[in-house]
């Protein structure tokens, strides 16, 4: 992945927004990778949480939100309880999702879920999923 880093990207508004919405500072991350190693959902992620933190340090939130990664987080908080720097990583990932969701773009349209799945699904999964994936 080719990236372009400059003072402009590092001080850009998107990464600042992620910081504000998540209440977390990705700059304290020292890149140990324990988070990515703990993540149960890496199977289909193009980039893992460690790299996400690094990209955010460089101000490249737009690079991160172009990936599917933020929508693969299950908010299981395994990374969060293990992070030696005390970063609430799921909160950072939630903020990344909200960058697009808050503009009214659904990641998952409720009506696209097959009716027979909705019928058998525990309500908790429907409620949680629509909270994470709909605008």
């Amino acid at each position: 992945m080719a990236i372009k880093v400059s003072v402009k990207t590092v001080r850009g508004p998107l990464a600042a927004k992620v910081k504000e919405v998540s209440g977390q500072d990705p700059n304290v991350c020292f890149q140990c990778g324990l988070c990515a190693g703990s993540c149960p959902m890496t199977g289909e992620m193009e980039i893992f949480t460690r790299k996400v933190m690094h990209l955010l340090q460089l101000g490249l939130a737009d690079v991160v939100i172009a990936q599917k990664m933020a929508y693969l987080c299950a908010s299981c908080h395994t990374c969060q309880v293990r992070c030696p720097r005390g970063i609430d990583i799921p909160a950072v990932v939630e903020a990344l999702r909200l960058l697009t969701l808050r503009h009214g773009e659904n990641y998952l349209a409720p009506e696209s879920i097959p009716a027979e799945r909705v019928r058998e699904m525990p309500q908790a999964a429907m409620v949680a999923g629509l909270r994470k994936f709909t605008a």
Partner: peptide
């Protein structure tokens, strides 16, 4: 025993979710 089953991901990203459950 304390790993995540993928939770609500099953409604959006089924194959990734089933993989987490498989582990």
């Amino acid at each position: 025993a304390t790993a995540c089953c993928s939770s609500y991901q099953i409604i959006a990203n089924e194959s990734a979710a089933l993989e987490a459950s498989a582990k």
